[in-house]
Design a binder for these strands. Structure first.
Lengths: 329, 329
DNA sequence: CCCGCCTTTGCAATCGATTGCGCAGCACCT
DNA sequence: AGGTGCTGCGCAATCGATTGCAAAGGCGGG
């Protein structure tokens, strides 16, 4: 308790509080003495008491909206990587990280942890199909930032990769390798994937390649569906020599589907993934993919959110994707 | 604020508090009225105030000790899966989940979030090399549970797979497939892996197969090292027809190393993984592996911890592993 | 030597909910 | 009618820290 430390230091509780908080009202000499005593006795301020008095929880909620593919989505290596990096970034700023699952169909899930005062602000990983809900929450002034696509006229701050460019790079790479029948695998309803898809179409158009509807598969993030859909496609006899996948997970699954259908990767079909998760370089064949800068992204997310919490203005930001060429193309 | 609700309901704050907490001191009629009013006004008790008064945070810390392979480890799909399931289980019990990174070399990291009153108890995923630190903390009475191996005379509660049996099953499976030169890949210093290794040795001994030191590779969890070590091994000309890997991640990496060295999986070498992460069934070839029951494990972890927090006795528990045969053997 | 100013510290109210204890009201019994 | 036992609710202290305001102490100037 603070009063114990105060007694030991021979000062009042106010002084201890201010010394520990680094207030300029306390002389350097006193502060050092107090701090030393607190350390020696293993004292740490009670966060509940502090939160109550200050009205701030000093905690950031991290949420992953998954209306459709529940755990599938979460266990995608990309989310795990992002979460690990967020944990580091949040802790590095002295904040705590509250991990919150978003239950299906829960109304105003974005603000729930905030208005219940459990967290000061939130970081949402991925827009999923929740853009509208997010936008409305932003209009209501809920402090949060999103990892995902930047959409026209959105009211919230988002950090993410330039997905359009990423999709374009992936597709152009295949085209340069001489591919003309290039499939796109991903759930375009998710804004990030939608952008990647637009990039894909643009690259095709730039090279005067006709975009074939049959080659554009609507696949929720899960690898299951990718596997089945692609197998079906190949079996249907449609010609195909390239695949742009919306995630590395889908890409790996696609490689398996192709191989089991008797097609060789990369000889017959080139496959490009998206994310460059750790696993991407260990698969067989190692995956050509579009790298997203997760670590800097995590830091940006945290810093933007803290800026918003401090009342400063914050802008959305897009990071440049990078093509990483490996053996799958 | 509670006083607002009290005023609206025409009762005292005490009554509101008790009604919302479901105290038996309040008549059913009054409780319902109060609850309804609270709901209509979107009122939720201030967690900071409650924590302060009750001395409990109603929060569980989840920690992943990673002295050696920092993020590598975390991004292993197994941890992500476990974390996702823990988030569900913890939230289902009405608790909050605080995700805490364990900084390198930090002293008494287990109790830190607890004695700072940020969490009531902790769940540690994986013993890593921290068994001693964990055991000491348990002796000091820190409330926590661990996912990992059960060691002789340990003082903490652990939930986990029967790793010895798992290692034995994996190895026996390869032996049944006619393999005799079976390698083991994993960091045996981690208790879970050590147990798996003992199971491996037991299976070999039971079949009168000599265990060859050269085939037992000390590999930290990362896939990098697995790839290199195994490539080196193959290049050195040692004969080899089976691999037992300490994780699916290592197994995948091993498959790539073998394939690139000109060996075919499963024709020349059979590979068995451990965990059965989602990705394991999508790789090429799909991975034969030892399945760990993550979801029930997560629920057990949470319930045991809550039991400990409630002052009830709790026992360690081992779950039966299951061999899942796919195409890699 | 006295006064006023600045620096440093302490007093006490406050954040929002919980809970031990006491009391009012009512039913029931003798 | 008075006594007894419950049930249901309110009073007020309390959890541990923060902070506006006041005051004490030190210092220099007149």
């Amino acid at each position: 308790m603070m009063s114990d430390i105060a007694a030991l230091a021979g000062v009042s509780e106010s002084t201890v509080s201010r010394a520990l908080a680094g207030s300029s009202l306390i002389s350097e000499k006193t502060r050092q003495r107090v701090v030393k005593i607190a350390q020696r006795h293993g004292y740490a301020v009670n966060p509940a008491a502090r939160s109550l008095r200050r009205g701030l929880s000093h905690t950031i909620a991290v949420m992953i909206p998954l209306r459709h593919a529940h755990n599938q989505h979460f266990s995608d290596a990309f989310f795990a990587d992002m979460l690990a990096n967020l944990a580091d970034a949040v802790n590095a700023r002295g904040y705590d990280l509250l991990l919150h699952r978003v239950s299906e169909g829960e109304a105003n899930w974005v603000e729930q942890p905030i208005q219940s005062r459990r967290a000061d602000g939130a970081i949402v990983i991925g827009q999923s199909l929740e853009h509208k809900a997010l936008d409305q929450a932003a209009v209501r002034g809920v402090p949060f930032v999103v990892w995902g696509a930047r959409l026209p006229e959105q009211h919230y701050v988002s950090i993410g990769t330039d997905n359009f460019l990423g999709g374009k790079l992936a597709t152009e790479h295949l085209i340069q390798r001489g591919r003309k029948r290039i499939a796109f695998l991903g759930d375009r309803r998710a804004p990030e994937v939608g952008e990647r898809h637009r990039g894909y179409l643009k690259a095709l158009a730039d090279s005067d390649i006709r975009a074939d509807r049959k080659l554009q598969l609507e696949i929720p993030f899960g690898a299951d569906e990718a596997l089945r859909s692609l197998s079906d496609l190949v079996r249907s006899g449609v010609s195909l020599d390239g695949v742009v996948a919306a995630s590395d997970t889908i890409a790996m699954s696609a490689i398996r589907a192709l191989t089991e259908s008797g097609l060789k990767v990369p000889a017959d079909v080139g496959v490009v993934g998206f994310d460059d998760v750790a696993m991407a370089s260990y698969t067989l064949p190692p995956l050509t993919t579009i790298r997203q800068e997760i670590a800097p992204g995590a830091v940006l997310l945290v810093d933007k959110l803290l800026a918003i919490l401090a009342g400063e203005p914050a802008q959305s930001q897009q990071m440049k994707p990078k093509l990483v060429v490996r053996a799958s193309t």
